[in-house]
Design a protein around this nucleic acid. Structure first.
Length: 219
DNA sequence: CTCCCGATAT
DNA sequence: ATATCAGGAG
């Protein structure tokens, strides 16, 4: 690990909690799995609003597996992409029952074989439920890892492997949640709060005081 | 690469 | 009006 990387991780540890706190409300592994499927291109705040009622109405994997598609679509509608998500959740839960005895599997291969579950969702489960070191590359991790100069890749899977080489294993899970918090509070995709950012020194896009991020319409 | 898609901030 | 939000499948 380079000195620069060590300093960035120290700054994150200093600013944000070192304890892992998931932003998607859940009580069980299968609830986190469904919440994460719903979180695609949707804010975690919106997902939590939906799952609050959803997990009372559907209080088991069986309920989701036997759900009526059009009903479930309406129940998750406000998360967007609701046709795909509803269909995937039903298929996913049926497979959990048919092939995994209702247990959420542990490996990337098994997890990504479930409908609606890609690498990002699989890594959320592995990190959060099974406490396996894993890099979750979501929109925040992608954007901010590029700004911090950890990667220049566009493909989330390539970014995942690159971050594995750069970051020590003990920080993999922590990095994910700290970067999301950083992205929510300061390092926005649009109009990030660069002037009050504690990461200025390490940002490849910071242009200096009184300048907009990425240098559009300057001077 | 395209499509899926509602809610919110700018 | 447009960009963005804890992406995934065909």
């Amino acid at each position: 690990m380079t000195k620069r990387t060590k300093e960035i991780l120290a700054l994150l540890d200093e600013k944000y909690s070192r304890e892992y706190k998931c932003y998607l409300n859940h009580e069980t592994a299968w609830q986190l799995l469904i919440a994460t499927i719903l979180s695609a291109q949707c804010t975690d705040a919106r997902v939590n609003i939906v799952t609050k009622d959803l997990f009372q109405k559907y209080d088991s994997i069986e309920k989701f597996a036997n759900a009526e598609l059009s009903k479930l679509e309406q129940d998750i509608k406000t998360t967007g992409f609701y046709h795909n998500k509803a269909k995937n959740i039903i298929l996913c839960c049926r497979k959990l029952l048919d092939e995994y005895q209702g247990e959420v599997p542990r490996t990337i291969e098994e997890l990504t074989s479930l409908a609606g579950v890609g690498r990002k969702t699989a890594n959320v489960i592995r990190g959060n439920i099974y406490h396996e070191p894993s890099i979750v590359v979501d929109t925040h991790v992608k954007r901010i890892s590029k700004r911090l100069g950890f990667t220049k890749e566009e493909d989330p899977e390539k970014i995942e492997y690159e971050l594995m080489k750069v970051l020590p294993k003990e920080h993999w899970i922590l990095y994910n949640i700290q970067i999301i918090t950083f992205g929510r509070n300061i390092c926005y995709a649009r109009s990030p709060k660069c002037e009050e950012c504690f990461m200025q020194k390490y940002c490849t896009e910071y242009k200096g005081i009184n300048r907009k991020h990425q240098g559009k319409n300057e001077e």
